[in-house]
Amino acid sequence: MLQKLFFGYYAFTIIILSLLVVTRKNPVHSVMWMLLLFFHIAGLYLFLNAEFIAAIQVIVYAGAILVLFLFVVLLLNLREELSLRQIAGSWPAAAFIVAALFVAVTAALGAYVQGPLGIYSIEAVRSETHTKALGRLMYTEYLFPFEIASLVLLVAVVGAVVLAKRKLRS
């Protein structure tokens, strides 16, 4: 019962917050609401026994990505922007499509059949701590994607520098 209550709070808040993110006129407000949203999602992850992921969520998403967003928003100085029309004229069409898709996806949920359970039960994970379990799995079976991910980050770093560089005036 308690669990359902917790979940209910998180779900409700997450949905309200995401609506707020999407509908605010001022981008800075949107970023702020998004920050709150990420914290709640991290809480949801904790609820699901994924501590490491929750930590990552806060550190990377809330701490790095949102800060980046905020920097860019502040850099672009979008004051004049605020007077322009922010929501597209065709939003009822988009709303309809989105609603229809939502209905379709939830209708599909009725056919959910649980597959065979894996070995990482809650107790097993808890005994080993989630980080260790995840680390062991990552560095043995999923080492290659891990290395690729580091390469992706390298590309991102270089690319971001190259793209945002001011052109030399020579």
């Binding site: 993110v21 979008l78 322009l84 597209a88 988009a94 709303a95």
Partner: peptide, 24 residues
């Protein structure tokens, strides 16, 4: 949440907010 994000992507006119919808 996914649908809300998609709605934001399809309707908002500010590019940064569109991007945030993608993150959503």
């Amino acid at each position: 949440v996914f649908m809300i994000g998609m709605f934001g992507f399809l309707t908002r006119r500010n590019i940064i907010i569109m991007f945030m919808s993608v993150e959503l």
